[in-house]
Design a protein around this nucleic acid. Sequence first.
DNA 1: AATAAAAGTTTCCGATCTGGGACTTTTTTA
DNA 2: TAAAAAAGTCCCAGATCGGAAACTTTTATT
Lengths: 79, 79
Amino acid sequence: MSSTIPSTRVKNPEELGRYLLKERRSLKLTQKEISEFTDVGRKFILELEKGKKNARIGKVFELIDALGMELHLVKRGDR
Amino acid sequence: MSSTIPSTRVKNPEELGRYLLKERRSLKLTQKEISEFTDVGRKFILELEKGKKNARIGKVFELIDALGMELHLVKRGDR
DNA sequence: AATAAAAGTTTCCGATCTGGGACTTTTTTA
DNA sequence: TAAAAAAGTCCCAGATCGGAAACTTTTATT
């Protein structure tokens, strides 16, 4: 299937972190607030936003969800 | 920006694993082969494909790349 | 500029990962 | 259906995570 939803490619943990930070800011949420209504600690958010390479995927999904976002897989080179 | 690239939403580690397995199969690659040309071990691939919750994000990116795919972030509810 | 809030840093430490190797089970294919 | 290949399981050991809490630095607000 095909979609016309705006999406941002993230190539690596650095880009992921940068984007999550940007999104959190635009939602006017603090790290503390998010850590309070999710299962994700403040330190985790802090480190992920700074590009942590080894964060655990389950928690990454939780945080993405908390920020009102989704993760999509795209086949490279598809047209 | 907007795109018309086919993408598959992955909500959690289970869906991610399922999709990566499907993609690996369609590329006719074995776990062993991938582990040989990447920095990702066979056991890691095995467990991720089975939906491992705590896989580390850096290796997930490596595997996605090895399978010729990209990860995209999408704002939920955007139209 | 002073105060407060948010963000970033550091330490401690139990929990869990990851790769390697060896073995078993399942699937493929000749 | 027999052999080979792939996938899955198990144990080990060293590495790293991630929460909590206390502290420092940066940013925001008055």
